[in-house]
Amino acid sequence: MNIYILIFSYLLLVLTIILSILAIHVKDLLAAVIFMGGGSLLVSLVFLLLQAPDVAMSEAAIGAALTMAIYIVAVKKTEREDNDD
């Protein structure tokens, strides 16, 4: 891999890990869902850099967009606060 592409993919992976830690850590469930969707979008960019355009496309269309919609409807119909101690 080109060195710039390699540095860019390191950056994307570190951001993805930070976003997934945030997604399971925050108390607000809507914020958690949005962190999760952002993580999916970044992972789809990583798939593109790994020369898998088909997988990147389906992760962006299904993993980031439709999954987020399903989560948001579920959060809207239940409750927004995570009352974990």
Binding site: S20, L29, A32, V43, A52, V75
Partner: peptide, 24 residues
């Protein structure tokens, strides 16, 4: 985690990680 939505988020994270592993 004890919250059901957080548990589903955990499942989704495992799936994402395994997809990344297989593609790489």
């Amino acid at each position: 985690k004890k919250n059901l939505i957080k548990i589903i988020i955990g499942l989704d994270l495992i799936e994402t990680g395994i997809n990344l592993l297989i593609v790489s």
